[in-house]
C-alpha cells in the first residue's frame, strides 16, 4: 500500500489565494471543528485551558512580512495544510502501509488502525502537514474532507472541504487540478499558481496564488493638491495670539 500509484485518475486539491486571504483563521477553526468529530480519531488538545496549551491541527495560518528591494513591506497571510503531493514522501517512508495515496482522486490518507505512530511520515514532510495526536498516538492529517466531498447526505453546496466552505474571503478553492479545464486549473494558469519548496521534488497538488502587485503610491496623492494654498507654518490670528500668550507662562 505504501508504494505510490503510478498516476491518479483525478488530482483533487486546494488552490489558496495569498492575495485574498485576510488571515482570519476561520478555516483553522472550521477544519478542527469538522475533523475532530468525523473521520478517524478526534483532534485532541492538551492542557487546553491551562498555562501551556497545545493541540492537533490539520491546517494552520502563518503570517509573513515580505520586504521588497524598493517600496513598502507587505504582510501575507499563509494558510498551510497537506498539499496531497504526487510524489508524497510521507507515503513511501511508512513502514506499516497505514499511509496511502488514493488512485481515484489522489487524496493522501492515514489508515489509523494500522498506524504505529512512529512519526517518520511527519519527519519526511517538508510542509509540517502531519501531526501525531498526543492522545491517540496516531498520525493525523488533512483528508481533504473526504467525508464531506462525496457525502450525499449533505446539500451539494457543502460538498467541499470545510475550510473552503467557511472561508469568508473566498481565498480557498477546491477542485480537480489534474483536469486542465477545471475552474481551479484555469485559476492557477491565470494567476501563475506556484508550488511550495519545488526543490524537494514532492510535486504538490495544492497550489498557491501569489499576491497581486500592489498599487504604487505616486508622489502626488491628490491631483487637486497643487491648487490648494499651502498651510501656514506659523499660526496667525486668534490661534497665534493664544500660542504666544501660553508660551509666556
Amino acid at each position: 500500500m505504501t508504494q505510490l500509484p503510478q498516476s491518479t485518475d483525478r488530482k483533487m486539491g486546494l488552490v489558496i489565494d495569498l492575495d485574498t486571504c485576510v488571515g482570519c483563521h476561520a478555516c483553522v477553526i472550521s477544519c478542527k471543528g469538522w475533523n475532530t468529530e468525523n473521520y478517524g480519531a478526534p483532534l485532541s488538545d492538551q492542557d487546553a485551558y491551562g498555562a501551556d496549551p497545545s493541540g492537533t491541527f490539520l491546517n494552520r495560518v502563518h503570517s509573513y512580512e515580505v520586504q521588497p528591494a524598493e517600496g513598502h513591506a507587505q504582510l501575507i497571510h499563509f494558510p498551510k495544510s497537506c498539499l496531497h503531493c504526487e510524489d508524497a514522501p510521507c507515503v513511501t517512508v511508512c513502514p506499516t502501509g497505514a499511509s496511502y495515496k488514493r488512485v481515484e482522486d489522489g487524496i493522501v490518507l492515514v489508515n489509523e488502525s494500522d498506524c504505529i505512530g512512529c512519526g517518520l511520515c511527519a519527519w519526511s514532510c517538508p510542509y509540517g502537514a502531519r501531526e501525531l495526536d498526543q492522545a491517540e498516538g496516531v498520525m493525523k492529517k488533512c483528508t481533504l474532507c473526504v467525508d464531506r466531498i462525496y457525502n450525499e447526505n449533505l446539500p451539494e453546496v457543502d460538498r467541499v472541504p470545510s475550510c473552503v466552505r467557511t472561508c469568508p474571503a473566498g481565498a480557498r478553492h477546491f477542485g480537480d487540478l489534474g483536469d486542465p479545464d477545471s475552474d481551479v486549473s484555469k485559476l492557477v494558469a491565470e494567476r501563475d499558481g506556484m508550488d511550495l519548496m519545488p526543490e524537494m521534488g514532492t510535486k504538490p497538488v495544492n497550489k498557491y496564488l501569489p499576491p497581486r502587485p500592489k498599487d504604487q503610491i505616486e508622489d502626488q496623492i491628490d491631483i487637486l493638491a497643487p491648487l490648494l494654498a499651502p498651510v501656514a507654518e506659523e499660526p496667525g490670528g486668534f490661534i497665534g495670539w493664544l500660542d504666544k500668550t501660553l508660551e509666556k507662562f
Binding site: 509573513y64 512580512e65 515580505v66 520586504q67 507587505q74 501575507i76 519548496m197 499576491p211
Partner: peptide, 12 residues
Amino acid sequence: TATGLGQRGSVR
C-alpha cells in the same frame, strides 16, 4: 522557497 515569496523580496 518555502513560501514561494522569495522572488518578491526578503521574507520574514
